[in-house]
């Protein structure tokens, strides 16, 4: 295990109990400079995880609770007339921070959703003809409820594609839940104790180190085979795009880095494949595991 990431995950696992794999994946997404989507039922710890991640990485963060009447300006900010200077002053919205926690993103109207997603892609916001660059690094950690819940606007495929990964926490083990019940709601308490475990420079270095991880030829071939399987098998109405292939390579590297290796294994690809491909292939969270298993069973692992 990489000592730096190990520390981060150790810290986070005090907050989110028994979900080390999901923590690794979430970290992996952020190291790959990707935006993270956390999908789960209410009360599973989505928001806790997103807060924890922002805290641990030591980045400035703002939280927006998405509702159906949220407007684009509520996120990006707006120009307000200053009667003293007789001019419009720009008041930046919550998007001007290093991490934006977009809670329940699918409760907002499509208009607001697209305003956010545009900013995610471009790294800048244009208001009243003026372009304002966003902070560096800039991450969006969005949470969403499963689509069948009432009052949700599903994200269109094109916008889902902009999220690097989608993870789902799932129910905790009985043992973990027992300790949760016993300890009561320690969330606020723990959040402040968590503290920062990584500096900005360290994060920057880690992100660069991801690109130095070796991606051997058979691994590239494996990624290619998996992607072409989704395209050629006819099982998927929305096969994986080249953006997804790139994301797979990048996240496999990040996963290898987190696991303390400087080369990737086919197992790394398998570990990240579900999170990277699941939302792009329109697989519901609940079926993701079995669907991914089915793909692995059909694609030969190149040597």
């Amino acid at each position: 295990m990489n000592p730096v990431t190990n520390k981060i995950i150790e810290n986070l696992s005090q907050l989110i109990l028994g979900k080390n794999e999901q923590l690794k994946l979430a970290l992996c997404c952020l190291l790959s400079k990707g935006h993270l989507l956390i999908e789960d039922l209410p009360g599973m710890g989505k928001t806790t995880l997103s807060h924890g991640l922002a805290n641990v990485l030591g980045l400035s963060y703002q939280r927006v609770q998405f509702t159906s009447d949220l407007l684009p300006a509520d996120i990006t900010g707006s120009s307000i007339f200053n009667s003293q200077t007789h001019s419009f002053d720009f008041h930046p919205g919550p998007i001007f921070s290093q991490i934006l926690l977009a809670d329940e993103i699918n409760r907002a109207s499509p208009k607001t959703q697209s305003a956010l997603l545009e900013a995610m892609e471009e790294g800048q916001v244009t208001i009243d003809g003026q372009t304002h660059p966003l902070a560096q690094p800039f991450f969006v950690i969005a949470t969403q409820n499963p689509l069948h819940q009432s009052g949700t606007h599903p994200l269109p495929e094109s916008q889902l594609d902009r999220f690097f990964m989608r993870i789902s926490l799932g129910y905790p083990d009985a043992q973990v839940e027992k300790s949760l019940i016993a300890s009561g709601n320690k969330r606020t308490l723990n959040m402040n104790d968590l503290g920062c475990s990584i500096s900005d420079e360290q994060l920057f270095e880690m992100q660069n180190a991801v690109m130095d991880v070796k991606l051997a030829e058979p691994i590239v071939q494996y990624i290619l085979d998996l992607v072409s399987y989704t395209r050629d098998s006819g099982e998927f109405s929305d096969p994986l795009s080249p953006r997804a292939s790139i994301a797979l390579g990048l996240s496999a590297r990040a996963y290898a880095l987190i696991s303390g290796r400087d080369y990737t294994l086919p197992d790394d690809v398998q570990a990240v494949f579900g999170c990277v491909a699941g939302h792009r292939l329109n697989i519901p969270c609940s079926e993701q595991e079995s669907a991914v298993e089915a793909i692995f069973e059909r694609v030969v692992v190149p040597l």
Partner: peptide, 8 residues
Amino acid sequence: SDRLTPKQ
């Protein structure tokens, strides 16, 4: 089994 990774 060529569907398993070497590790598996």
